[in-house]
Amino acid sequence: MAEAVKQEIDARGSACPGPLMELIRGIKASSVGDAVAVLSSDPGSNKDIPDWVDKIGYELVSNEDHGEYHRFVVRKTK
């Protein structure tokens, strides 16, 4: 099933608060079942975002490599 992204956050170039914090902001404002996308140019996001999604038990729907940035889609599952 293609993901229906409820919100896309462009966090490219965000040093503070940073892509993961932006994702958490988006997720907190979402309802259970919503998918939130975040664009990140920070190489650290490749570890930070999957680690957090794993820790909290949400679903990492996709992690697309667009060259200069990655697009992560996370679904709030509970």
């Binding site: 503070c16 608060p17 940073g18 993961l20 914090m21 958490i24 957090w52």
Partner: peptide
């Protein structure tokens, strides 16, 4: 702190 380190700025 919400993420996996003590501040969002690495």
């Amino acid at each position: 702190y919400p993420i996996n380190r003590t501040h969002s700025i690495a």
